[in-house]
Design a protein around this nucleic acid. Structure first.
Length: 820
DNA sequence: AGCACGCCGACT
DNA sequence: GTCGGCGTGCTC
């Protein structure tokens, strides 16, 4: 028997329960190119339909069994190194995702390929058989016979004037008139935003508005005649209509679509301007030296705990200098790129053309370019968000995870990884240093540092000896009842004073419109989304109620759908509501509202922050994002409108999050020459977390919180694994969760008697129904060990194979950030 | 998941 | 007698 080459391939569209490395024959013509890390096209399943795959490994073997050959190699050179292939395997084991999905997460989105079906006339179709076909079918066959070529499905259906979902070509394949092939590969194009504008002249538009239009059409036309162009999404939002209205107007020739690249290009010219030496304070110098020593000794993980304004970035830069000198790459991870423009520009100024940026604000093409620059070694300093942790550096020396406690580092969709864990894998591989940095470290990280698993460095001096702001806690119970005001008297007075002194203020709200629900004063019924079981939010801009989960909109009405009384009122306060109150109570103040509603286009965010910095506004009001990394000299007052909502969300981490948030917000005030003040409004003024945040006392907070985690058995003293169940029928989802639990108990008892395990649930998820699908969950208090992973993977595989629960999908999420 | 094969009911 | 329903098992 002659030896043949066999490639093990990770195939796309597999579920975890039948996911494995599939063996394929490497034909002689591909032996030079079908290397590990390359994408290939392989026949899969009974029908041998083509699927994409990634070669995991190649080996020689004597051919015994019949084995299918690889159909094509899609890349000239491997996209993934050995390191990243290994990381992919690790990712699959840790996050219970299919191998292909794990690897795909490491590739830039601009590289994704889509398989396209195309059809051609089958050989030897007897003309008389054509008679048996319906006219529609005959047209298709005739067209393909005439053209004599393969035609892509989409184009064929368009030419034939059929709907894109039509089943006719497939039927004709079954009947033997056509052949189908799936090896046509198309690059997924850049995501452009679909824009719409008026197609008529001003006079024509005017005439149209005087003529007959439906009310919604009139609304849209009026809106666009004022706004010029807008994205379809925006038009629908502000005109409170569906896309069909826009489509109709386009068909009538009143409007036209156009594409818009809303993304900003990464900085094109990149001269390094600021390559001089960095002056470190004694404290910074000490941290830097310790870190450098650790790096030279083979790296590992270190926590840099530095209070706000202690100059952590200076330390990063000095370390990066040293690592770059040795020709190794530096990866700088930030939680959200738009919140750290300062950090980004600092790195640009210092390292110029060596910098690459990776984040979702780039177009697909730009992301691809940056990825290539990293892969070929042109870019050695990579700044990016979560997905940048997979940057294809060949030789990595340093990874910095800035604001390491941020939840954005955890992926909430498959593969559900934490960038911190991936970074740990990578520094181990490269013998590099991982630097976790924060002013309010996660309990987990500080715990690891305190027991010596990570080294710890502290920066405790605020830059320029700026003082902490004076914090006053306002007891909202003492406010006169019945005013419905979100802002207390003392806070409004402070704002007034600040306004008169020509200084700026920042107000923090928890979530956009979190509390702006509408309820009936008569029967208490809350207006709830018909698709998702959550209360809807009132939006002033268009007078609509909106569901933040599925996007459903409906007009606000005072008539209660439950009791029929005319008593529905909206209450609570979202950002829009507080904005209105500020307008009423502080006439003349210039107010900037910053939240995801007003931040529809990406760079408007930065523009707004820019104009706030220039002093074009007096008061900025916003959600969490106002708390992050912004440094405005003239801000001397910050207010937390409602501390209680952060403190009392139903999550074991709510104190930790609230402490971090309050600490950051309070730290925003008084960063310049002037002393700062902070106001915290609450109904529980004696809550210890409030006092600790006011003093910025992390150590005391850590001490009390870690003690409670230990007694209550929460991370870091265990791991918390969520097993989620999703499906269209509530009973089946619930039954699935029960069945899973049943088997879990059985298998644990029989095969894993020593595994530490406590099970909570099954329970419906907090938001039980999202976009027509029901969700249940089990919560496992466990230890994330290899043995536990084998146990859970076994259960997931076995559940997936169960015929009776095929409409229910189960997934696992280790230490999720939020438990929705 | 997706797809083909197979074994039962409604039909020319 | 055949077409097509969806239950069942497999994917190198």
């Amino acid at each position: 028997m002659p030896a043949v080459m066999i490639a093990q391939v990770a195939v796309e569209q597999t579920a975890i329960y039948f996911d494995k490395g599939y063996d394929y024959l490497v034909p002689p013509s591909m032996q030079e190119t079908a290397l590990p890390g390359c994408r290939v096209l392989v026949p899969f399943g009974r029908g041998n339909r083509k699927r994409q795959g990634i070669v995991l490994s190649v080996r020689q073997e004597t051919a015994l069994e019949s084995i299918k050959p690889i159909a094509a190699v899609l890349d000239k050179a491997p996209l993934l190194s050995n390191e990243l292939l290994s990381l992919g395997k690790w990712l699959r084991e840790k996050t219970y995702c299919p191998q292909f999905d794990a690897l795909k997460a490491m590739l830039p989105a601009g590289m994704s390929l889509r398989l396209v079906a195309s059809y051609a006339i089958a050989p030897d179709v007897a003309p008389e058989r054509m008679e048996t076909l319906a006219p529609e079918e005959r047209r298709i066959v005739q067209h393909l016979a005439d053209s004599g070529a393969h035609v892509e499905r989409e184009r064929l259906l368009e030419i034939m004037g059929l709907s894109p979902e039509s089943d006719l070509p497939e039927q004709l394949v079954k009947k033997g008139f056509l052949t189908r092939s799936d090896d046509s590969v198309r690059r997924i194009g850049d995501a452009t935003v679909k824009m719409v504008r008026l197609a008529l002249s001003d006079e024509e538009t005017q005439a149209l508005l005087e003529g007959k239009l439906t009310p919604k059409q009139r609304e849209v036309v009026t809106l666009l005649s004022q706004a010029g162009g807008a994205s379809v999404k925006e038009v629908c939002y502000f005109a409170a209509c569906g896309v069909s209205v826009v489509n109709t107007l386009v068909r009538k020739g009143v409007l036209e679509f156009y594409a818009n690249e809303t993304y900003r290009a990464p900085v094109k010219e990149r001269p390094a301007q600021d390559a001089g030496s960095i002056r470190l304070t004694d404290e910074q110098q000490k941290a830097f030296e310790q870190l450098l020593t650790q790096y030279q000794a083979g790296g590992g993980v270190s926590l840099l705990y530095g209070v706000t304004g202690s100059g952590k970035t200076q330390v990063f830069m000095r370390l990066a200098d040293e690592v770059l000198k040795l020709g190794r790459a530096v990866l700088v991870m930030v939680p959200e790129i738009s919140l750290t423009p300062q950090t980004l520009s600092l790195f640009y100024r210092r390292y110029g053309g060596q910098v690459a940026v990776i984040h979702s604000g780039l177009s697909l093409g730009e992301r691809l370019d940056e990825w290539k620059r990293i892969k070929n070694g042109q870019a050695k300093v990579i700044v990016g968000t979560r997905s940048a942790v997979f940057a294809p550096c060949e030789d990595l020396g340093l990874i910095i995870l800035d604001e390491e406690q941020e939840h954005t580092y955890k992926s909430e969709s498959s593969p559900r990884f934490h960038a911190r864990d991936v970074a740990k894998f990578r520094v181990k591989w490269h013998k590099a240093l991982l630097l976790l940095s924060s002013a309010t470290p996660s309990l987990e990280s500080f715990y690891q540092a305190s027991r010596g698993r990570y080294t710890l460095n502290r920066l405790e001096t605020r830059y320029g000896d700026a003082n902490l702001p004076a914090v006053s806690v306002i007891d909202m119970r003492l406010e006169p009842p019945g005013t419905g005001n979100a802002l207390s008297g003392p806070l409004v007075e402070e704002l007034q004073e600040n306004l008169q002194a020509g200084r700026q203020s920042i107000l923090l709200l928890n979530r956009r419109g979190y509390n702006t629900f509408a309820s009936c004063r008569s029967c208490g019924e809350v207006v709830t989304c018909p698709n998702c079981s959550i209360s809807m939010t009132y939006h002033t801009a268009n007078g609509q109620m909106m569901c933040h989960y599925c996007g459903h909109m409906q007009p606000f009405t005072t008539k209660c759908s439950h009791c029929g009384e005319d008593q529905v009122r909206y209450s609570g306060f979202g950002t829009q509501r507080v904005e209105q109150e500020l307008i009423d109570r502080l006439p003349g103040a210039r107010i900037l509202r910053l939240d995801t509603d007003t931040t529809m286009t990406r760079d408007s965010h930065e523009r707004k922050l820019g104009s706030f910095a220039k002093g074009e506004y007096d008061i900025m009001i916003g959600t969490q994002m106002v708390a992050k990394g912004l440094d405005f000299e003239n801000v001397t007052l910050v207010g937390i409108v409602s501390a209680d909502q952060s403190l009392f969300s139903d999550d074991y981490r709510s104190y930790e999050r609230a402490f971090a948030l309050f600490t950051q917000v309070v730290g925003r005030s008084g960063r310049g020459k002037h002393a700062g003040r902070a106001v915290i409004q609450t109904y529980t003024p004696d809550h210890p977390v409030i006092a600790l945040a006011a003093r910025q006392d992390y150590d005391a907070f850590y001490k009390s919180e870690i003690a409670s985690r230990k007694t209550m058995l929460y991370p870091p003293f265990c791991d918390l694994c969520l097993v989620g169940f999703v499906g269209r029928e509530e009973e089946k989802v619930q039954a699935g969760a029960r069945e899973f639990l049943h088997e879990l108990k059985e298998v644990a008892q029989r095969d894993y008697p020593k595994l530490p395990l406590r099970v909570l649930g099954p329970a419906p998820a907090v938001v039980c129904k999202v976009a027509g699908k029901y969700r249940y969950r089990l919560l496992l208090k466990c230890r994330d060990t290899a043995e536990f992973r084998r146990f859970l993977m076994g259960l997931l595989v076995s559940f997936g194979k169960k015929r009776g629960f095929s409409e229910v999908t189960a997934y696992a999420d280790m230490n999720p950030e939020g438990i929705l």
